[in-house]
Design a protein around this nucleic acid. Structure first.
Lengths: 355, 355
DNA sequence: CTGAAAGCGCTTACAG
DNA sequence: CTGAAAGCGCTTACAG
């Protein structure tokens, strides 16, 4: 093992002080152009790069953002992950990843691990945060952003130190209700995601409100827990023989909606949308696929990531740090062919319509 | 901003030396149970956790693995990412993520950034590595594992310092050829992924060899570059009016195979598998979905991740470090309903068959 | 602009 | 088992 090369090695080769080496790698530091050139030359020869850990020890900035994820099988999250990582890389930050399979469990443990790395910020796209950990982050001046969720305990102290970014779930749910009601549906079912998740709670609330505004209510309800297989089961129950069948289903996520459509078509022999309309939520890339052409509420990932990064950076830039914020990004209902009243099917596909 | 709490703060509160605090957090260090308890108590009260950066400066181990990814829209990679992160977390390692959208470009830049963090290992699941960077990693004793790819320049020095893990792409390609030929197909097309990628090269080679063994050759060929939209285009060209149509298509990835099936069915009005058989590669979760029921070659993610982590850990454990290895994990052809000669369709779905 | 020196928060010989 | 001290590789006042 060749020992790793340090700024002293570079200094020796470049015939300058170690401080000069450091300055040459610090944007804005005062070094003459000639010194910097000597240093950079020597550094290149030796393959030197400043040690990020040593640097972070002094600057108190690790340029690392901790990200907690689960639900990677739902394509909304890989897409968000990719955009977040790219966006942060452009600003010289990097993502330290933490995965937990059982959604809301263990979030505290993971954040504990994250804290060891003295990350500059934390993005939680799985689970939410306990109040005690939220306070620890606040004490350590580490901004926390909940991505696609909000804190359950709205009034608590924790809620004042933790930001959140989400799309307008309530508005989206309401728009779906109006769309289905106005499309002539009368037996409108709902398949929930994780019943405790804020996304599901808000979507369902908006949906109920929207139906009420049309003098309707949920005709039947199942729970899919944001899982493909569970959504299949829920569909079978909702459409069990002997029961009066729903004429439309609002599903709390696209990922589950695909399961619903497959079950309707291939197990139950029903046509979508002729027999049953299906509407999802997220607008993942697969929603456009011709096998599904899913009418759904788009969660605009770009703006959501942009808001997340702004929140993080405002906090890091400002002194005293800017307060927590709850950002809601509007989303559109995207009309495709999985629900009656949507866009008219065209031969070639293409044209999504927005409401 | 509350200053972050250090081992000295804990030492003061616990009435012990700073060394004792450090030892209490070091597994196997010699501390009396009573001292450790005092320390842990004080640490909990203060919310203390050892600073990972300071620790890594001394131990020369960051417990961070750098991971370079692109192609996140292909569900094979999110699944692999999730398993890798979970597996490493169990051993106290964490994943620092680097995303590059334009596949093979900029891999060197990214690895340069990674090196600053003095990661304990690098997994490349996108792009491959230049020889110069490979040498830098070797000099710094950082093991590199190519995931789902191999180095192009087999004979070079770099190839001796960089390990790889992949499934048996050649064998998989050959199995598909035999399966399609034996199923009575005679006009068998191929849609390539990224033509320079080792995965594509190997799958195509095995496929050609397998066809040759049945006195056949590729009937028509398109390039999808592992991209959904490009695979659509390739399909349109392969099945353009006026040409004699393929009776089977082997597609270099599942992700593209979905595009192929959709195009065949909904644009060209062909039945799968009655008019055209389609076979993919990867066995991503969606391949099981009832809309596709894709016959495909499974890349076994579990064993591939296991091999990746073993390679990393063997290298880190051994002194002198264990040499680079190229691991090939076998994969099975999974028979579903997208190709003739496969499993017979069952009413309820379920039963995948293996060849 | 430049160098010598202090110090970030730890681990680990070293001596007791 | 325990503590004092050195040192990991940096950045940044400080003095010139």
């Amino acid at each position: 093992m060749t020992a790793s090369v340090t700024s002293f090695d570079v200094a020796r080769l470049a015939q300058v002080s170690q401080s000069a080496v450091s300055r040459s790698f610090t944007p804005g530091a005062s070094v003459s152009e000639i010194t910097r050139r000597k240093v950079l030359d020597a550094a290149r020869k030796l393959g030197y790069r400043p040690n990020a850990h040593a640097r972070s020890l002094i600057t108190k900035r690790s340029r690392i953002i901790g990200l907690v994820l689960s639900q990677l099988e739902n394509l909304f999250y890989p897409a968000a992950l990719q955009q977040l990582a790219e966006r942060l890389q452009r600003d010289g930050y990097h993502v330290l990843l933490f995965v937990n399979r059982n959604a809301d469990a263990d979030a505290d443990d993971l954040v504990g691990e994250i804290l060891q790395y003295h990350v500059d910020g934390i993005v939680l796209a799985a689970a939410t945060l306990s109040s005690s950990l939220a306070r620890q982050c606040a004490d350590a001046s580490i901004p926390v952003v909940l991505f696609n969720r909000v804190m359950a305990e709205a009034g608590t102290r924790a809620a004042h130190t933790v930001s959140s970014v989400r799309s307008d779930n309530v508005g989206g749910g309401r728009a779906v209700a109006h769309f289905l009601a106005d499309g002539g549906h009368r037996r409108i079912a709902f398949i929930a995601g994780n019943e405790e998740a804020s996304t599901n709670l808000e979507r369902e609330r908006g949906f109920r409100e929207g139906l009420a505004e049309r003098d309707l209510r949920i005709f039947a309800r199942g729970v899919g827990n944001y899982d493909f297989a569970q959504a299949q089961l829920a569909t079978r129950e909702l459409f069990a023989a002997g029961l009066e069948r729903p004429d439309a289903v609002f599903v709390a996520s696209d990922h589950m909606a695909f399961a619903v459509m497959d079950t309707l078509r291939f197990e139950l022999g029903l046509r979508v949308p002729d027999d049953v309309s299906v509407v999802g939520f997220d607008d993942v890339p697969q929603a456009q696929w011709h096998s599904y052409r899913l009418t759904t509420v788009r969660q605009p990932i770009g703006p959501m990531i942009e808001a997340t990064v702004s929140l993080l950076q405002n906090y890091l830039r400002d002194d005293p740090p800017s307060p927590a914020e709850n950002v809601v990004v509007p989303g559109d209902l995207i009309l495709r062919q999985s629900a009656r009243g949507g866009a008219t099917p065209s031969a070639q596909g293409g044209g999504d319509a927005r409401l």
